[in-house]
C-alpha cells in the first residue's frame, strides 16, 4: 500500500474509532452547549461593579469563555488519548513500513475533524444564545477551530511526552483550566503574561468577532504561531517516540 492510500486509511480508522462510541458523540454535542450556557449563567451571578477587568455584558463574556474552553479542552483531551492509545499500534505500523509523518498526519486529521465539529456546535450554540449579537459567525467558527487545533496539538504533545493516561490527563486538565482563566480576560493580569496563554489569542479573536463583528488581526499571527510551535514539537516528539527513541 502506498502513502496516498495509507494516509486516508489511517485517518478513516482513527476517526471511526472515535465516532464509533455513541457516548463520545453525545458528549461532543452536549458539553460545548452546556459549557457555554453554564459559563454564561455563572458570570451573570457576579455584580457588574467593575469586579472583573472586562467591559460589556458579563454573560456574553462568560458564554465566549465557555465556548473557547470547551472547544480547546475537548480537542486537547482527544489529542492526548489518540497518542496514548495508539502508541503500541503505531510502533508496529512503523515496523510494517508506515512513516511517522503518515501516522502523525492521520492522528492530527482526526483531531482536526473533531475540532471542526466542536467549533460548529459551539458557534451554533453561541448564535442561538446570543441572538442578533454575533457580528461575524464565520470568524467565530474559524477562531474556535484555531482553539481546537491548538489544544489538539498540545494534547498530542503531552500524550507523546507523558504517555500515561492519569499523568497526561492531570497535566492537560490543569493546563486547560489555568489557560482558560488567563485567556478569559476577567482578571486584571498583565498582557505580557497572558499573551503566553495559548487560548488567549483565539479567545480575543472570538470576542472581537462576536461583539464587533470584525477580525482581531493583531491576534491572528500569535494564534497561528502557537499552532506552528505545538505542531513542530508534537511531530518531532512523535517521530522520535515511534522510531523507538524512548525505548
Amino acid at each position: 500500500m502506498n502513502a496516498t492510500r495509507r494516509i486516508p486509511a489511517g485517518i478513516r480508522a482513527s476517526t471511526l474509532s472515535f465516532f464509533r462510541e455513541p457516548l463520545n458523540i453525545a458528549l461532543l454535542l452536549i458539553l460545548p452547549t452546556l459549557s457555554i450556557q453554564i459559563y454564561g449563567v455563572s458570570l451573570s451571578q457576579f455584580p457588574e461593579i467593575g469586579m472583573f477587568a472586562v467591559t460589556g455584558s458579563l454573560t456574553t463574556v462568560g458564554r465566549i469563555t465557555g465556548a473557547v474552553f470547551a472547544t480547546g479542552a475537548l480537542a486537547g483531551v482527544l489529542g492526548l488519548f489518540q497518542m496514548i492509545s495508539a502508541r503500541n499500534a503505531d510502533r508496529r505500523l512503523v515496523i510494517a513500513g508506515f512513516s511517522p509523518s503518515e501516522l502523525v498526519v492521520s492522528r492530527f486529521t482526526t483531531i482536526l475533524v473533531v475540532s471542526l465539529a466542536i467549533s460548529a456546535v459551539s458557534t451554533v450554540t453561541l448564535t442561538w444564545l446570543l441572538p442578533g449579537t454575533i457580528g461575524a459567525p464565520f470568524i467565530v467558527f474559524s477562531s474556535l477551530a484555531l482553539a481546537g487545533i491548538t489544544y489538539g496539538l498540545l494534547g498530542m504533545l503531552v500524550g507523546t511526552i507523558l504517555p500515561r493516561e492519569l499523568e497526561g490527563s492531570l497535566v492537560l486538565v490543569i493546563l486547560a483550566d489555568m489557560d482558560n482563566v488567563f485567556a478569559s480576560g476577567l482578571f486584571n493580569i498583565d498582557d505580557d503574561i497572558t499573551q503566553f496563554a495559548p487560548l488567549s489569542h483565539p479567545h480575543e479573536l472570538v470576542s472581537r468577532a462576536v461583539v464587533e463583528g470584525s477580525l482581531a488581526t493583531d491576534h491572528v499571527l500569535p494564534a497561528l504561531a502557537f499552532i506552528a510551535i505545538f505542531g513542530m514539537l508534537s511531530v518531532s516528539a512523535y517521530a522520535y517516540t515511534v522510531s523507538g527513541g524512548d525505548a
Binding site: 457516548l23 458528549l27 470547551a70 482527544l78
Partner: peptide, 22 residues
C-alpha cells in the same frame, strides 16, 4: 469510559466550585 470521564471531570470542579461556589 476514560475519555468521556476525563471530559466530565475536566468541567465539573471548575463549574461547581470556581464558578458557582464563588
Amino acid at each position: 469510559n476514560r475519555l468521556s470521564g476525563v471530559y466530565v471531570m475536566l468541567f465539573a470542579p471548575m463549574v461547581d466550585i470556581l464558578m458557582f461556589q464563588n
